[in-house]
């Protein structure tokens, strides 16, 4: 594993989030794509950062509900007992 620092690649690092989120202009994207075509470490950083965010999305997509007992106690705490019919979901 190379002990590379990003002194020459700092520009990419600063734009990495915007690039991954699709918020960079076409010209900057082009520059980044040109750079990663020549710089293997930067390519890996871009690809693995993107993959990291993908995994976070995938792994959390299933965790969206509220446990029924948590909902029950919440409604009781808020004095909303009379609205405590089964949730519409």
């Amino acid at each position: 594993m190379a002990e590379t620092t990003f002194t020459s690649c700092e520009g990419l690092l600063g734009s990495l989030s915007d690039y991954i989120d699709g918020e960079l202009g076409a010209e900057l994207c082009r520059q980044i794509e040109k750079h990663v075509a020549e710089c293997e470490n930067c390519r890996i950083v871009v690809d693995t950062t993107r993959k990291t965010i993908d995994l976070v999305h995938v792994s959390n997509a299933s965790e969206t509900g509220l446990p029924e007992d948590v909902r029950d106690r919440l409604f009781k705490r808020l004095n909303l007992d009379d609205y405590l019919k089964p949730s519409a979901k």
């Binding site: 594993m1 990003f6 700092e10 690092l13 470490n41 890996i44 693995t48 995994l55």
Partner: peptide, 18 residues
């Protein structure tokens, strides 16, 4: 912090990653 790990694991299959 600048990256220090340059292992490319991004192409591993998702069921393995997760």
């Amino acid at each position: 912090l600048p990256p220090t790990q340059f292992v490319d694991w991004s192409a591993l299959p998702e069921d393995e990653l997760l």
